[in-house]
Amino acid sequence: MATKTDILTDLAAIVDEIAGVPADDVQLDKEFVGDLDVDSLSMVEIVVAAEEKFGVRIPDDQVKNLKTVGDAVDYIESAQS
């Protein structure tokens, strides 16, 4: 099972690839919209890429709850278990 750190590393790489946010800036307490300036279409891309990478399903009605990177890491971790 992937640890939180592993998930963060992989998620940061996805955010870097899609939105051009340097992976080092993708920290657990950062908000996707407020801090990382990720727009709505890029967020959809990130969710889809995360689903593929982590083998989980992130329904649309859950996406709005994933405000911070930490929210997303927690969601992916629980969905994997």
Binding site: L41, V44, E45, V48, E51, E52
Partner: peptide, 10 residues
């Protein structure tokens, strides 16, 4: 369909 890019239209 969930893998189609949200940027495809623009």
């Amino acid at each position: 369909p969930r893998r189609v890019s949200p940027l495809a239209i623009p």
